[in-house]
Design a protein around this nucleic acid. Structure first.
Lengths: 113, 113
DNA sequence: TTGACATATTCCAATATAGGAATATGATCT
DNA sequence: AGATCATATTCCTATATTGGAATATGTCAA
């Protein structure tokens, strides 16, 4: 079997660095395809294809504006990331706590009171 | 050109669902390969290969324990992901604020004081 | 309608992948 | 040393991908 499709879920969609770059550009607000092309120095078809992927997983929306097409980021769709990451923050905090305890213990022992 | 390597960065490493599953299992603490195999009903080579990828991007560590090998999660390495996500929280909050202002404005106008 | 501009899609080649099967490596015990 | 258990690696196939070039679609203006 091959790797999962880029459109399989948000995790696969943001694995591609240029797609993250596009999202980063869109944080500034709604932008036309051509603007993204200029900002990132990517080819127009490349940008359109990446936008399609982002669109399929719901990370961006688009609306027509004359002959242009304005894309904007849909930050609500980042929810899965938040949820997933939250689990590891707990693990991380627990670890930091243990580290803290350890350091305190060292300090206590080193202290010839 | 082909897709970026799974070992290219954390983003690519966690794009694969089974790798996320493995990380999830490891949140519970250090575990041997065989334990992961049992917990997730994956093949042993599959798990070893995924662990290798996770290891290469630093998301897991391993230490020898007799003939077993214990893996643990290294949540600090999710920092890039965390930072990336933080940018979008700001964008999201800004958007919610604007929405809030808009709603208040509507309310104010609708209020025949 | 014709032309110009903006974006999307198709076709192609090269590549990295995930999983399965078989096998190699490493460690422990007798 | 030999057997066994635990894990890692190699070889293979099928597949999805990214980027480039060319082209199609869609929209506005004269």
């Amino acid at each position: 079997m091959a790797r999962a499709a880029a459109t399989a879920d948000v995790f696969n969609a943001i694995a591609e660095p240029r797609r993250r770059a596009i999202l980063d550009v869109l944080i500034g607000g709604e932008k036309a395809v051509g603007t993204i092309v200029d900002d990132l120095s990517l080819s127009q078809p490349q940008v359109s294809k990446h936008l399609r992927v982002l669109s399929e997983v719901g990370l961006v929306r688009s609306r027509a504006d004359g002959r242009r097409r304005l894309y904007s980021v849909e930050p609500e769709r980042l929810q899965p990331f938040h949820e997933w990451l939250a689990k590891y923050e707990q693990a991380l905090n627990a670890r930091l706590d243990r580290m803290d305890d350890y350091l305190k213990e060292l300090q206590r022992q080193g202290d010839p009171q």
